[in-house]
Amino acid sequence: MRKSLWVIIVLLALVISTIASAGIWTSINSLTLKEVKPSKTYALDVVGLNVRVYEFDTQEEPVHHCVVIFTESKYKAPVMQCWKK
């Protein structure tokens, strides 16, 4: 009995760690969020990097215009800048 309890505990720990690392909780929590399409999307011509730019306006007052820049590199974080319209 004790051995089967340990097996269940170990399997449960493996399942929980797999779910947490897969981002399932993030997906579940974001189901209620309203999805907003960016007003403009385009790529920048940069040598050696795939740079994508997304522009959008915030939905709440005061309205801000934001630009988000993503690069496909494990060493570069996304950058976002917003300003009042």
Rank of each mutant, 00 (worst) to 15 (best):
R2L: 12
R2H: 11
K3Q: 12
K3F: 13
L5R: 13
V7S: 11
I8Q: 08
I8W: 10
L12G: 15
A13V: 12
L14R: 04
L14M: 14
V15E: 06
V15D: 04
I16S: 13
S17D: 09
S17M: 08
S17K: 11
I19E: 03
S21A: 13
A22S: 14
G23L: 03
G23S: 06
I24C: 01
W25R: 04
T26D: 13
T26Q: 14
S27I: 02
S27D: 09
N29G: 09
L31H: 07
L31R: 11
L33E: 15
L33N: 15
K34L: 05
K34P: 02
K34T: 11
V36F: 14
V36H: 15
K37Y: 05
K37W: 04
P38G: 03
S39L: 11
S39F: 07
Y42H: 13
D45Y: 01
D45I: 00
D45P: 02
G48C: 03
L49N: 14
N50D: 15
V53K: 02
Y54G: 01
Y54T: 03
F56A: 07
F56E: 03
F56G: 00
D57L: 09
D57A: 12
T58I: 02
E60G: 04
P62C: 03
P62I: 02
V63N: 07
C66Q: 01
C66M: 05
V67Q: 06
V67H: 00
I69Q: 06
I69A: 05
F70L: 12
F70S: 03
E72D: 15
E72Q: 14
Y75I: 06
Y75C: 00
A77P: 03
A77W: 08
P78V: 00
P78E: 06
V79I: 08
M80W: 05
M80F: 04
C82L: 07
C82T: 06
C82Q: 08
W83H: 12
W83P: 00
K85S: 08
